[in-house]
Design a protein around this nucleic acid. Structure first.
Lengths: 147, 147
DNA sequence: GGCTGTCGTAACTGTAATCGTTACAGCGGA
DNA sequence: TCCGCTGTAACGATTACAGTTACGACAGCC
């Protein structure tokens, strides 16, 4: 599968902002997050823009600008992030519509649509079980670098 | 998401072969399947080649050549097809390794890896619950075209 | 009011995956 | 020998995403 790092990077950004705020800071800049994620600030701003549209973060402009959480880490789930950041369905139908004169060609899309819907429902349920609070906890539980 | 139609087309091909064999035919050709799926025979041959490597179908060459099922539709699950046809994991890590000097950058990948593994395990479990027999049944249950 | 730092966004490039297509060698029964 | 189909390489088109540069917009601060 064309693996997608958007969910990973978005979770990274949220965890970073959350930890930074717990250390007493008001806002985090896209530059700081980009340094941690080893990428470009614009990539972070684009992702956080989608998270803002979903109501997960807020941004300030002007001097002393930056990003802050709009909700507690404990109330944000990976499903919230997934829906904010991943547009399409997990599995796609054919690019061109199959031969409607063929029994299989006619029935395959309704059949697969129903099956895929069930599977995605389960996926969403699993994603909804993981909060960003847990993500940050797991992050901090990672073993230190051996010296 | 960059939606992938490989699983859909592979299931289509298997259902088509299965139904064709139940109608008394020995083998199906990539040309026939491609006509039903409204695509190119080479695309079908490539997909079926991967399914053959996974032991799901067999192919004959020479005159009267074509494809046949290596196992009953009832014993093939969408998980078998998924594993044969989709290479990578569902969610990817960062393209470049995050800043290991940052607490979040250091811990994010182990944390997400663990979470993703759990989720993919659930996905596989769901895929394993659907047999190609059920897919074909759903295909045939699709309502006829209204005249 | 101007300065400054950051957001917000457009535009473009590079890279990778997939699909579609053409071409052709290989196989094996008739 | 002939013929139909497999097997596979090669190439172009399309799409998605990451990365980058550039620049306007905003708002606190001097």
């Amino acid at each position: 599968m064309s693996a997608n790092s958007r969910l990973t990077t978005a979770a990274h950004a949220l965890a970073w902002i959350g930890l930074y705020q717990r250390q007493g800071h008001e806002v985090a800049t896209s530059e700081q997050i980009a340094t941690s994620a080893n990428t470009n600030p614009v990539v972070i701003r684009r992702l956080l823009g989608e998270l803002r549209r979903a109501g997960l973060v807020e941004s300030r402009r002007g001097a002393g600008a930056g990003w802050s959480l709009a909700r507690e880490l404990g109330s944000i789930t990976l499903l919230d992030v997934y829906e904010a950041v991943e547009p399409g369905p997990l599995f796609a139908m054919h690019r061109t519509t199959p031969d409607q004169g063929c029994v299989v060609g006619h029935g395959i899309q309704p059949a697969m649509r129903g099956i895929y819907q069930d599977i995605e429902e389960t996926l969403r349920h699993e994603l909804a079980r993981v909060t960003l609070e847990k993500v940050l906890r797991d992050v901090l539980a990672a073993p230190r670098q051996p010296l």
